[in-house]
Design a protein around this nucleic acid. Structure first.
Lengths: 159, 159
DNA sequence: TATATAATGATAATGATATTCATTATCTTT
DNA sequence: AAAGATAATGAATATCATTATCATTATATA
């Protein structure tokens, strides 16, 4: 029997694993569906109740697998946990992070000025030439206080 | 040897502590003098042999103090340790990081195009207006492979 | 369906950082 | 300068995220 799905997860993981299993399927799907940045513990807490056969260890191992396969991105938010997000179609989903130092909230900032992306690319070229680095990725994050956490008290612009 | 002894450390820390102590002095000075990004363990390993009265706990506490006082910056390089660097005179020392995924080496990238700084500032404004964030800082890091770690040594073609 | 073995999960181990608490050192007041 | 109040310290211990171990289970393929 065969199935025709868009692009099977197993296909994307490629040579990085030999067997595609239920835990891997579920963990990967959760990451794909989620709009948030999930930590191992959060993934475990989400999946385990419905499927107790998924252990925390496997969550860590699968995240590592997906990272090696280049399918997810690690994010260090400074809260002591590493978080993960699925890398969607390159350019289209490219974004930077806006992190609140107060509550840890993370926003994805996507509304780039065209010049912003151009500049990043140009900078990567300069760095490659000047320091001999082979640039593979960049992280840009802005740290500050969200509306709820900033000194002026919390505002409610809309609800 | 340095001749330059600017504002006293104690002065810089301000209200964030009540007493200025030998361990704090040494830890802060080490950070000021160092051109590298140091972890708590490294600071401990550097200072403790010469001054066994400085414990690892105090290193952590002092780093936290300096961070709260806004005198150092935390850097998450993904190697499991948080690293710290002294924030020098604002604009003058502003830099971004170039991190090698292979060996963990970190370069400070300072040679900005003028437009780069302008763009960052402009972006901060946009973010502030659009999301109500009060931006206090940004981190830009480029991840890749340094000349020693990249496949084929220093002469691989770029693409 | 049987089989080889990759992948799993429970558990223990690790490593970085935080907390506890009795002791020490700093700073202010004599 | 000495005394006293108490902030800061370090050793030991705890905590929390992540890794390693290993017997067991499930997947892919014959």
């Amino acid at each position: 029997m065969k199935q025709d799905k868009p692009v099977s997860p197993r296909r994307q993981v490629g040579d990085h694993c030999r067997r595609w299993t239920v835990p891997r399927e579920e963990i990967f799907n959760l990451l794909i569906q989620s709009q948030q940045h999930l930590s191992a513990k959060e993934i475990y807490a989400t999946l385990n109740p419905a499927n107790p056969a998924i252990g925390l260890t496997t969550v860590y191992r699968t995240l590592d697998l997906l990272d090696r396969a280049g399918l997810v991105r690690r994010i260090h938010t400074g809260d002591g946990q590493v978080r993960f997000e699925y890398k969607r179609g390159r350019e289209a989903d490219h974004h930077h992070h806006l992190i609140c130092s107060g509550c840890g909230k993370i926003l994805n900032y996507r509304d780039f000025e065209k010049e912003e992306l151009d500049l990043v690319r140009k900078t990567e070229d300069i760095l490659a030439r000047k320091y001999g680095f082979l640039i593979r990725e960049h992280n840009i994050e802005f740290l500050g206080l969200c509306p709820d956490c900033r000194p002026g008290g919390k505002k409610s612009p809309l609800r």
